[in-house]
């Protein structure tokens, strides 16, 4: 275990030393990776903020449950409890039939008509604010509510939620496609960088193999090099994304003042930054590992 750890520490320090020994070449590779990663990261951040803004702008989708006329108070109470317990429900509001009639009379200017009615035709109702904007959540809540005893009719404004969902899904797919392409680019850049390094160190590698180096011993420093390059590339990308965010937020602040909106670009959560940086590092390591493997496969027969 100790020997294994020592071998990895040695390979890591070797990789770091080689990165530092060629600041220009390594710096340019890191910059290219950083710029390539900036596009999907910035687009993803823009998508997240657009989605949040859309949620705030349009408000939560609602489901209205109209009860049967003969629903007793205790049954109504049970219904309210069931609705509040539903994972898709953010808040539940009861609208009594008298309040609904009064509201109708007031909002539609139908006061005279309402007074002329022999009896109140409106049922009791619950208005449920849905958690999130997912069309799937909305649909699930609608179905569950419709199945509850005493509920006669359910109405939901799920069309706009579906449209928003479809738009977000389309944008997410586009970002994902760009991200996959650029991730492949990162792997290719690292593959090529490492291939050039291998060519430069071919004598050393061949000697090491002749005197007993395993494939792992040969591979390790290059994989760490690729890992560091990917990580530094991600760091550059985040710096660029932060710069873009700062520039856009200045412009958005003007719009926000004019329109009373709350648009901003911002930065992702630290956990997201760490996770994506780790992913970039892994992609760099993958490119390096593939490059060394390709060399080893074409090198000594055994």
């Amino acid at each position: 275990m100790k020997a294994w750890l020592l071998a990895h520490l040695r390979a890591f320090s070797d990789a770091w030393r080689r990165l530092a020994a060629q600041p220009l070449a390594a710096g340019l590779s890191v910059l290219v990776i950083g710029i390539a990663l900036t596009l999907p990261l910035a687009l993803a951040q823009m998508l997240v903020q657009t989605q949040r803004f859309a949620e705030r702008f349009t408000g939560s989708p609602q489901v209205s449950l109209f009860l049967a006329m003969d629903v007793a108070a205790d049954q109504r109470q049970a219904l309210e409890t069931a609705l509040r317990a539903h994972p898709g429900a953010k808040s539940v509001r009861f609208v009594g039939r008298d309040a609904a009639l009064a509201d109708l009379a007031k909002s539609a200017g139908l006061g005279d008509v309402a007074q002329a009615l022999p009896a109140n035709p409106l049922p009791d109702a619950f208005v449920v604010d849905v958690r999130g904007t997912s069309a799937a959540t909305l649909e699930q809540l609608r179905r569950d509510a419709a199945a509850l005893p005493g509920v006669e009719h359910v109405q939901s404004d799920h069309e706009w939620a579906r449209r928003l969902d479809a738009l977000v899904s389309l944008a997410r797919s586009a970002v994902l496609a760009v991200a996959v392409l650029l991730a492949a680019g990162l792997v290719a850049i690292t593959f090529n960088t490492i291939r050039l390094q291998i060519l430069g160190r071919r004598a050393e590698i061949e000697l090491a193999q002749l005197i007993g180096a395993t494939d792992g011993f040969v591979r390790r420093p290059f994989v760490y090099f690729g890992l560091l390059q990917g990580l530094l590339g991600a760091l550059v990308a985040w710096i660029l994304v932060a710069a873009i965010a700062a520039a856009l937020d200045r412009e958005l602040a003007v719009l926000n003042r004019l329109y009373g909106s709350a648009l901003h670009f911002g930065l992702p959560a630290p956990l997201t930054v760490a996770g994506l940086s780790g992913l970039c590092a892994l992609l760099g390591a993958l490119g390096a590992a593939l490059s060394v493997q390709d060399y080893l496969r074409r090198g000594l027969s055994k």
């Binding site: 005197i211 007993g212 180096a213 395993t214 494939d215 055994k302």
Partner: peptide, 19 residues
């Protein structure tokens, strides 16, 4: 490959072209 590498480590080699 791994066992062969381990075997090579048991030898000391003086190469003709020094390496």
């Amino acid at each position: 490959r791994r066992a062969l590498a381990a075997l090579r480590r048991q030898f000391g080699v003086i190469f003709q072209d020094q390496k």
